[in-house]
């Protein structure tokens, strides 16, 4: 009996972590070795975040952590304790990247879609920091996101078009405010 209990103790060696995921308070029991991407995908069933290389090279696992794009494969879940995490699911529901998604769709800036959530999160971060990036700057910003299908051009086009549209809208808003 005691040996069974000790086995069970060993199997139960998890840590409780709490985050705000996509705007909701969430608690998970994770093993110390569980990465954030595994926790999101397996425990929280947020499968829109993908694991592509598990070493921070491909960008498929990008999520927003406290508002910054980070590789969920390079963090242990316990390291994210107390953080605000936004995944592609949350960003889709809130509508903040709706214009990017619509432009990606219109231009077919995705094929298999496996890189797409990471691309969108990176594009969203870029446009949050730089209002009208040049094509060169967009390509540079995407240099950590691997896409095997598209050849990147349509993705660059889509991001550039959204940047222009947002800038035009902002200018219109400013004009409206001043008149």
């Amino acid at each position: 009996m005691s040996s069974i209990m000790s086995d069970l103790d060993e199997a139960d060696a998890t840590v409780r972590v709490r985050f705000v995921v996509n705007g909701r308070k969430t608690a998970c029991d994770v093993a110390p070795r569980d990465t954030l991407v595994d926790c999101l995908r397996t425990q929280l069933e947020l499968t829109g975040t993908h694991a592509g290389c598990e070493m921070g090279a491909c960008g498929a696992c990008l999520v927003q952590l406290d508002g910054r794009a980070v590789h969920a494969c390079l963090m242990f879940a316990v390291q994210a304790d107390g953080a605000r995490i936004d995944t592609i699911e949350g960003l889709s529901e809130s509508g903040v990247i709706a214009d990017l998604q619509a432009e990606f769709h219109r231009r077919n800036a995705l094929q298999c879609g496996f890189c797409t959530p990471g691309m969108l999160i990176n594009a969203h971060e870029l446009l949050s920091n730089v209002a009208r990036p040049s094509r060169e700057a967009i390509r540079d910003a995407l240099s950590g996101n691997f896409c095997r299908c598209t050849g990147y051009e349509a993705i660059v086009d889509a991001i550039a078009a959204v940047a222009e549209a947002r800038a035009a809208k902002a200018a219109q808003g400013a004009e409206g405010a001043s008149s």
């Binding site: 829109g48 998604q101 769709h105 797409t116």
Partner: peptide
């Protein structure tokens, strides 16, 4: 393609 853009793809993974 829209559901893939929303992270709603369903891959074998």
């Amino acid at each position: 393609a829209k559901r893939l853009l929303a992270g709603r793809g369903r891959y074998v993974t």
